[in-house]
Design a protein around this nucleic acid. Structure first.
Lengths: 341, 341
DNA sequence: TAAATTTGCTAAAACGATTTAGTAATGTAT
DNA sequence: ATACATTACTAAATCGTTTTAGCAAATTTA
């Protein structure tokens, strides 16, 4: 049998006063509600003594606030999202919010289910890395005036708050850098999805390619939930049938992992002859052979902006103009993208 | 103004019946409570029509159950824990539980604060990667009969449920493997903490060393919250002052990251001459140069066992015997630990 | 046909907080 | 002396469920 926790009622009974009084004192309204200094002190001391902590579930039911935020990502095991999760966790706790993380696998049904689940738990707000087509669900949230913020990707046709990075410019810069280093046949390996982050990255690549009058050589892999070895075979045939390739840009981190495997296994020595850039940095890229050039997204800033926005939404009851934040990624240049000879 | 959600009361009013009846129907007790088939059907259909979903906060308040589990780790950004988080998330959701992840930075105060925080939120259970000295807080939880499970590390003096891996045997095997490959001066780089997982790993190393009559060469770095470049300088001087070292075993993943940086930066070529093994595998180790041998903990099994245990605890009101699960890690042998010449 | 049982349903308490709308007692202004 | 304000506090409603206890009508049993 679980020991009964002390409630505000117990305190009131023990002190022979009403729960109202206790509640007022606990909520710092003693003065405003004309509770005498002595009684206030007495209550506070007793509360301290019995180590009373209010039941947050009851508070939530009464106030409608849960002090819980949801951070929904594609996959919390992905290092990019894990990193962000940690940053957001820290910022949220500082403001008295807890964070429920969940992974949607970029799947619409899962996203919707999760959102409904959390609505019923009265979470206070959502930071969402949206799957391809959940505009309606997002719209519903907005109409119900629940704070929502899209993250990492957004819907161009939907007027919402979002925090993303300058994806097009980033790939563009990456390609320019490769061109500067003498690479001419630059391949791009991405996912076959129309989500903004990927479309933007692709557009950046295409624009840069056309700007320099280069050939487009791209591989668009279907999105699959099994992240490991995604597109293994496709990449191999792609590289075999395009032997002119002298540089590759990968659109996201797990594609890069597979890419490195394929290259190292099936094309020995190639890694040291081609230009190689990936989206999303990893600790190990610094010491990899060759060290890997990466587009690093400003995770700390992204988390900070996200929290700023969601907190603002939480505070104001009145409609406030949507904020659309686009942060700059930086190209961390390492050996893999330099002409080496 | 947030649109008011439909409540069980609304439904009762709309159908001109009592909330009790609605509740019974919704909870599948229609038959047991002798609610007629027709009325049951009517209620169900109406509920479906207005898309009613019970308010879980109210349910929690009434039942004392929140359907929320806490998974407290050292750092959710650490790939080992992020991976586990995802596995646990998936298992929990299948059973109707949500998971709150939080990071304690291996700090006792933070751990305690978090635990208190969540107790007030009436979470149903805790899976905890405990910081060095929170035995008392854990004991309190147990005494309050709240389901707890220690994870990744445990307190030998505390009789609790836990899921860990065979750390001592793992490092022992790792050293044996290095010995088999002709390495003789095997260094061990670890954290200066007395937590079980690290003590066990150290003991495994020491036993193996003494078994083969080798010299102990170990570096114990103070634990620090800033994970990046932890012990950078110490490692450098350690390697400089122990030039006889021909192999290194790293006790945990972030030490390995720093280790690789130091070796690649300050001791060019060394990585190809020494034996190198790390605890915790990474995708990139497979294609690293040289590919890195790693002790891989059975994350999927760990998560599964953890959920099994916590679910059992959640179900039974009666005391059940503590389960102490020790799972086997596997040594994934790659080039870095082989004698190469 | 009376008693007992079953059927079909509901009123109201409870979970633990917050908050509105009071009351009684005292103090102040006119 | 009367009206008005202020002080110090509280009763009761409320949030949205679950659950206990119970009632009236219909049905079965004796």
């Amino acid at each position: 049998m679980r020991k009964k926790r002390v409630s505000i009622k117990d305190i009131a009974a023990d002190l022979n006063i009403s729960v109202t009084t206790v509640s007022f004192v606990l909520n710092g309204k003693a003065e405003e509600k004309h509770i005498s200094k002595q009684l206030t002190k007495k209550v506070l001391e007793y509360v301290e003594k019995v180590n009373y902590k209010p039941n947050q579930i009851a508070q939530s039911l009464r106030t409608g606030e849960s002090k819980i935020l949801v951070f929904m990502v594609e996959d919390i095991a992905n290092s990019f999202f894990a990193k962000l999760a940690r940053l957001i966790e820290d910022l949220a706790y500082k403001k008295g919010y807890k964070v429920l993380f969940c992974s949607n696998d970029n799947d619409d049904n899962k996203s919707k289910e999760l959102i409904h689940l959390f609505k019923n738990r009265q979470v206070d707000g959502f930071i969402i890395v949206p799957s391809p087509k959940i505009q309606n669900t997002i719209t519903n949230l907005i109409e119900e005036r629940i704070p929502v913020l899209l993250f990492d990707r957004y819907y161009p046709e939907l007027d919402t708050n979002y925090v993303v990075t300058n994806n097009a410019e980033s790939t563009q810069k990456a390609i320019e850098h490769l061109v500067d280093n003498g690479f001419k046949n630059i391949a791009y390996i991405t996912l076959d999805t129309h989500q903004s982050q990927m479309e933007d990255r692709l557009n950046g690549y295409l624009e840069a390619i056309s700007k320099y009058g280069l050939q487009e050589i791209s591989l668009r892999l279907p999105f699959s939930k099994t992240i490991s070895n995604q597109g293994d075979k496709e990449m191999k045939t792609f590289l075999e049938s395009n032997p002119e390739i002298d540089a590759i840009l990968f659109a996201t981190n797990y594609l890069t992992e597979t890419g490195l495997e394929v290259i190292k296994r099936d094309f020995p020595g190639l890694i040291d002859r081609i230009g190689f850039i990936t989206f999303d940095d990893s600790h190990l890229f610094k010491t990899y052979s060759p060290s890997i050039t990466a587009v690093a997204q400003p995770t700390a800033k992204m988390a900070q902006e996200a929290m700023d926005i969601i907190l603002k939404l939480l505070k104001s009851d009145t409609e406030i103009p949507n904020r659309k934040v686009i942060l700059e990624s930086s190209l961390i240049i390492r050996d893999s993208s330099k002409r080496r000879f």
